[in-house]
Computed example of a mutant assay.
Amino acid sequence: MTDYAEEQRNELEAIESIYPDSFTVLSEDPTSFTITVTSDAGENGETVEATLKFTYVGKYPDEPPLWEIHSQENLEDNDMEDIFTLLQQQAEENLGMVMIFTLVTAVQDKLNEIVDVMKNRREEEKRQKEKEAEEAEKVQFQGTVVTIENFLAWKAKFEIEMAELRRKKLKEEEQAGKPKLSGKQLFERDHNLDTSDIQFLEDGGNSVEVDESLFQDIEDLDLDEDDPNFDPLEMGSDED
C-alpha cells in the first residue's frame, strides 16, 4: 500500500533544498506551497516571472496536485493559458511519480521561450520601423512616379478646378456690378489661346503692315490725274 504522506514529505524536503530562495510553505494541512520561477534574462535584461502555487491532494502522486499561478510579472493572458496547458500535459504524463520538480522545470523552459518570443517580436518591430523609415525617405526624395494613368487623372482634376475658379470669379464680378463680358472678352481672358489670335480679333481680322516711307514724298509730286495721258510709271522713269 502506497504511503502518500511519506512520499509527499520526502518530495517537499527535496523541493525546499532545490529552491531555497523561492520556496515558501503556505499551509501544512493540506500541504500547500509556492515556488517562484523566473526566466533567464533577455538581451536587454528583461525577464518574466510566475509564482506557482501547488497543493497536495490525498492520493498524490497517483492523482495530480492542484495548481494555480499565484502571481506573475510581464506575462500576458495567452502566456498564462499556455502555462496551464503545459502543466496539465506534464501532470498527465507523470502520474504515479512525484512531479513538482518536473512541472517547475517545464514552466521554467516555457518562460525562457516567452522571453525569446518577446526579443524576436521587438527585433521584428525594429526592422519594420526601419523599413518604413527607408521607404518614407525614398518617397520624399523620389516623389511620385508619373504614369499615364495618374497624369491623366491629375489633368482632369486640374481642368475641373480651373473651370470652377473661372466660374466663381465671373460670378463674383457679376455680383460686384461689373458689366457682363462679351464673347470676345471671354475669349481674350482664356490664356490658353494664342496671342496672335487675340490680336487678329482686335484688328477685325485685317492686320496689315504698311511702309509709310513709300509715301513720304507724294505731296511733292506734280500729278495731273485728270490728264488722259497720265502714266505714273513714266513719271517714275523720268525721275530716274
Rank of each mutant, 00 (worst) to 15 (best):
T2Y: 08
D3F: 02
D3P: 13
A5D: 07
A5F: 09
E7F: 09
N10Q: 11
L12I: 08
L12P: 01
A14V: 11
A14N: 06
A14Y: 12
I15Y: 02
E16Y: 15
S17C: 08
I18S: 08
Y19M: 06
Y19F: 06
P20V: 06
P20R: 00
S22Q: 04
T24E: 12
T24D: 14
P30E: 11
S32H: 01
F33H: 06
I35Q: 01
T36N: 01
V37Q: 08
G42E: 03
G45H: 00
T47C: 10
V48H: 03
E49C: 12
T51N: 05
T51G: 03
T51V: 12
F54T: 04
T55S: 03
Y56A: 00
V57Q: 00
Y60R: 05
Y60D: 00
H70E: 04
H70Y: 15
Q72S: 08
E73F: 05
N74G: 05
L87D: 08
Q90E: 11
E93Y: 01
M97F: 12
M99I: 00
I100A: 04
T105M: 13
A106E: 06
A106W: 09
V107N: 02
Q108S: 06
D109R: 15
K110N: 11
I114T: 04
I114A: 04
V117N: 10
V117K: 12
M118K: 03
K119P: 00
K119V: 12
R122C: 04
R122P: 01
E125A: 10
K126Q: 04
Q128F: 05
Q128V: 02
K131N: 04
E134F: 14
K138D: 06
V139I: 09
Q140C: 08
Q140F: 12
F141L: 10
G143P: 03
V146K: 03
E149W: 00
N150W: 02
L152M: 04
A156F: 08
A156N: 06
E159L: 09
E159Q: 14
E159M: 07
M162L: 10
M162W: 00
A163N: 10
K169G: 14
L170F: 13
L170M: 07
E172D: 02
E173S: 14
L181G: 05
S182R: 08
G183F: 09
F187M: 10
S196H: 05
L201H: 13
D203A: 15
D203Q: 06
S207C: 15
S207N: 06
E209Q: 05
E209T: 01
D211P: 10
S213Q: 10
F215S: 08
D217K: 11
E225W: 13
E225F: 15
E225L: 15
P228F: 14
P232C: 07
E234N: 07
M235V: 11
D238G: 07
D238Q: 14
E239A: 10
